[in-house]
Amino acid sequence: MADKINYKQVFFNPFSKNNPVVVQILGICSVLAVTAKLEPAMVMGMSVIAVLAFANVIISLIRNTIPTNIRIIVQLVVVAGLVVIVDQLLKAYAYDVSKQLSVFIGLIITNCILMGRLEAFAMANRPWPAFLDGVGNGIGYALILVIVGFFRELLGSGTLMGFQVVPDSWYAAGYVNNGLMILPPMALIVVACIIWVQRSLNKDLQED
């Protein structure tokens, strides 16, 4: 069975057809909290890709020695170790962003995407496909983060990555930033719009 895994599908499915955020509805908390600006959203996305890929590989390597009763604790400890490394690295090399992300780097541990992929994929597959699955799902997650972050920063602050994009002449003509976009509830509505667009393009995903 292990030989028949389609690596390409494992890697590319999470981008759209099986996206962890908008199809499997995992890891929503951080999508809402860190996407008010584009930059923290990208940093968060990269952190999750790294943690997910390595956690998948490690769990996949030791999958045959973990007793089923305590597997959740083992998985959490592996993930927590990796998250601490990411947290310390960010504090050392990107202190401002790490301040903005505050508790949400720590909350990567309880990001359901991690537990979901570890349980569903890494526990049953060899390290290489597990690595591809981790990177694929991480990118699928980061993709949504970046889209949401892009719209919220553009409409909410008129900037992208901290640079102003909405020209001054617009403001002079009466254009006003939409302050509501900065508030966390609007992230939910932006995600809902992404779900709407994606499901009208892909009829298989619609619910009754």
Binding site: I25, P184, P185, M186, L188, I189, V191, A192, I195, W196, V197, Q198, R199, S200, Q206, E207, D208
Partner: peptide
Amino acid sequence: KPLRGIGITFIITALMG
């Protein structure tokens, strides 16, 4: 149709928020 289920739940949660 495309908004049924999870989509509308997101919007309701946002409004309640």
